[in-house]
């Protein structure tokens, strides 16, 4: 069941089209990644879904509620967290969480329980009485994440939530995202330019560029859609053996080969299947190799390719 349906969503700032009629759906309980280069329109999309700004055209349905018509209903069931989130600098974590818990209409008992559980989950206890201004970036972001979960949202919007955080805090944040999805059956819409992060967390993604939806689907589909496959690398013992490699091109699933002195790169649709035949062939031809490895096509590469494609088509 789709819990979020984005329907031809569009946002213009003056004449500038920041988001141009994009549509996609997010399934209940998944962590959906929204990827794209800087200025692609990721934040604008999330801000519209989170009711911070109004769409110029189109709409979205979140858990059955229209973001334009049932704005308040939507607000009650979503949470938004961005990077470098700020709060009253002279309030401490407890005060910040209490304030928002009230704005989300949690009664005093519910506030106490929810805040206690968030403080535990995000390990806020040791700095819970310190002013926001005195906290480290990581601590601030933990409070921001906790605040965005104050109402136990059904849909949790995370706009580059680990941006500017050190590796360890980023890891904690990713763990909390996964745990929350499991424990509270939350659906997540996450933007990030740490592509490895999206690969780690999401199964399905949407790629957007210059306000346009480029592709949406599973990470595997997206890689294939962009013609980006895993690669096999090995080194020849003798450079003269390079002439013996033609047979590789005839193996099923072969896409591309490059020989650079003794280094060989083979790109294939499914290298795991191709590699047996490749090794057999090399043995038959008595070609000696070493350093054989399969490099998985990272989303990063696919993404860079996309951006390059985007800018060259100008």
């Amino acid at each position: 069941m789709s819990i979020v349906q984005v329907l031809k969503l569009k946002k213009s700032f003056g004449d500038f089209k920041a988001v141009n009629e994009i549509s996609f759906e997010v399934e209940k309980g998944e962590i959906f990644g929204v990827l794209g280069p800087n200025g692609a329109g990721k934040s604008t999309t999330l801000n519209m879904l989170a009711t911070l700004i109004e769409p110029t055209g189109g709409t979205a349905i979140i858990n059955g509620f229209d973001i334009k018509k049932d704005t308040k209903k939507v607000q009650e069931i979503i949470g938004l967290c961005t990077s470098s989130t700020k709060f009253f600098w002279d309030f401490n974590a407890i005060e910040i969480l209490n304030y928002y818990a009230m704005l989300y209409d949690l009664d005093s008992g519910a506030r106490k329980r929810r805040i206690a559980s968030l403080i535990e989950r995000f390990e806020i206890t040791e700095f819970q009485n310190k002013k926001f201004a005195e906290l480290s970036t990581g601590m601030k972001q933990k409070i921001a994440l906790a605040k965005s979960l104050i109402n136990k949202p059904k849909v949790w919007f995370l706009d580059e939530p680990t941006n500017g955080l050190d590796l360890e805090v980023s890891k904690t944040v990713r763990k909390v995202i996964r745990d929350t999805v499991k424990e509270e059956n939350t659906t997540v819409l996450l933007t990030s330019h740490h592509l490895s992060e999206v690969e780690e967390l999401s199964k399905r993604i949407a790629l957007i560029n210059k306000g346009e939806l480029v592709v949406v689907g599973s990470i595997k589909q997206v890689k294939e859609g962009l013609n980006f496959f895993d690669t096999i690398h090995f080194t020849l013992a003798k450079q003269s053996d390079a002439t013996q490699l033609e047979f590789i091109k005839k193996i099923d699933g072969f896409e591309y080969m490059r020989v650079d002195e003794t280094r060989v790169l083979v790109r294939a649709r499914s290298p795991q299947k191709l590699i047996g035949k490749l090794i057999n062939g090399l043995e038959n031809k008595n070609v000696k190799i070493y350093d054989l490895e399969i490099k998985r096509a990272s989303l990063e590469d696919a993404f860079l390719k996309l951006i390059k494609g985007g800018s060259s088509s100008k």
């Binding site: 009650e76 979503i78 938004l80 961005t82 700020k86 709060f87 600098w89």
Partner: peptide, 11 residues
């Protein structure tokens, strides 16, 4: 305190 967005998205 740069926190208007929290207010603007609260119900």
């Amino acid at each position: 305190s740069d926190s208007v967005k929290h207010l603007a998205t609260a119900p």
